[in-house]
Amino acid sequence: MTLHSYVIEHDMGFAPNPFHRRCSLAACKPLIRASATLGDYVMGTGTAHNDMRQHLIYWMHIDEIVDFDAYWNDPRFRRKRPVMHGSMAQRHGDNIYHSLPGGGFFQADSFHSQDDGQPDPANRDRDTGRTQRVLLARNFAYYGKHARSIPDEFRGFIKKGPGHRNKFTAANLAYFMEWLLADPARGYIAEPTDWL
């Protein structure tokens, strides 16, 4: 089991998407999506801009990995397709990609498209260029605005800046996971920190 830790630059309910009883990571973080395996954990911490630098926004325990086409076509995940005139949760749906017959990927009107709904090539290339994998979890805790303060003794698990961390000693990881999983709260707990 590996723990992948990173900073959530924009906590909008898009990446990760904690809605509809599944936490999904289908955009951003291509290196984590490319390398994570079943049974791994992913955790995201806050940033200075929302006063959440040493706070846990969410964690997920990966129990399913699919590609973009499977995610798009699976009826279980239809509600994760964005509806740009819907609720905040609907607007931040992350089920936005599927392959095109001639190559490349369709990008739905979404948080990662341009303001007028047209595809955003930079976001599309970053999301699809290295991997087509979508990480899914039924066992997760998304704290959002009720983010948990991470004790000073676990500061080494907080990634600073871009990228991610996933190299920890077995003893330190076991100690941290004991803290992480001690809170019984699960699922969607509070709205994203960057929602007004």
Results as ranks from 00 to 15, higher is better:
residue 12 M to R: 01
residue 71 Y to T: 09
residue 34 A to W: 05
residue 67 D to I: 07
residue 44 G to R: 07
residue 93 G to E: 03
residue 90 Q to W: 01
residue 76 R to S: 02
residue 194 D to I: 13
residue 52 M to Q: 08
residue 145 K to T: 15
residue 113 S to H: 06
residue 137 A to V: 09
residue 95 N to D: 10
residue 90 Q to A: 15
residue 192 P to R: 11
residue 117 G to E: 13
residue 169 T to K: 00
residue 124 R to M: 06
residue 61 H to Q: 09
residue 170 A to T: 11
residue 196 L to K: 03
residue 171 A to Q: 09
residue 7 V to F: 01
residue 35 S to Q: 13
residue 96 I to G: 05
residue 25 L to Y: 05
residue 2 T to N: 06
residue 183 D to G: 06
residue 190 A to P: 03
residue 186 R to Y: 02
residue 131 T to F: 12
residue 161 G to K: 05
residue 129 G to K: 03
residue 7 V to Q: 05
residue 182 A to M: 08
residue 135 L to Q: 00
residue 157 F to M: 01
residue 132 Q to P: 02
residue 115 D to L: 14
residue 8 I to M: 14
residue 106 F to T: 12
residue 79 R to T: 07
residue 3 L to F: 05
residue 193 T to R: 05
residue 80 K to P: 00
residue 195 W to I: 09
residue 83 V to D: 02
residue 117 G to M: 03
residue 99 S to N: 03
residue 4 H to C: 07
residue 141 A to K: 04
residue 15 A to N: 04
residue 142 Y to A: 08
residue 79 R to I: 08
residue 17 N to G: 08
residue 7 V to M: 09
residue 133 R to K: 14
residue 182 A to F: 10
residue 138 R to T: 15
residue 88 M to H: 05
residue 142 Y to L: 09
residue 178 E to C: 05
residue 121 P to F: 06
residue 121 P to W: 15
residue 30 P to D: 08
residue 131 T to Q: 02
residue 148 R to H: 10
residue 69 D to N: 08
residue 19 F to K: 09
residue 151 P to H: 00
residue 49 H to V: 07
residue 188 Y to D: 04
residue 172 N to F: 00
residue 185 A to K: 04
residue 151 P to S: 01
residue 101 P to F: 08
residue 178 E to L: 11
residue 165 R to C: 04
residue 154 F to Y: 15
residue 99 S to T: 15
residue 162 P to H: 12
residue 124 R to A: 10
residue 38 L to R: 00
residue 120 D to C: 11
residue 186 R to N: 14
residue 129 G to H: 03
residue 108 A to R: 03
residue 68 F to V: 11
residue 76 R to G: 02
residue 75 P to G: 04
residue 52 M to F: 10
residue 29 K to F: 10
residue 80 K to E: 00
residue 86 G to D: 15
residue 176 F to W: 14
residue 186 R to D: 10
residue 73 N to Y: 10
residue 132 Q to T: 15
residue 168 F to D: 01
residue 92 H to K: 00
residue 63 D to V: 03
residue 23 C to D: 02
residue 27 A to E: 14
residue 13 G to D: 09
residue 11 D to M: 13
residue 128 T to N: 05
residue 29 K to M: 06
residue 78 R to Y: 15
residue 115 D to P: 03
residue 193 T to S: 12
residue 99 S to I: 02
residue 143 Y to H: 04
residue 128 T to M: 05
residue 143 Y to N: 05
residue 157 F to Q: 00
residue 99 S to R: 10
residue 91 R to S: 13
residue 45 T to W: 01
residue 32 I to Y: 11
residue 185 A to M: 04
residue 148 R to C: 08
residue 31 L to W: 14
residue 154 F to E: 07
residue 171 A to W: 00
residue 136 L to Q: 00
residue 191 E to S: 11
residue 187 G to N: 05
residue 48 A to K: 06
residue 156 G to M: 08
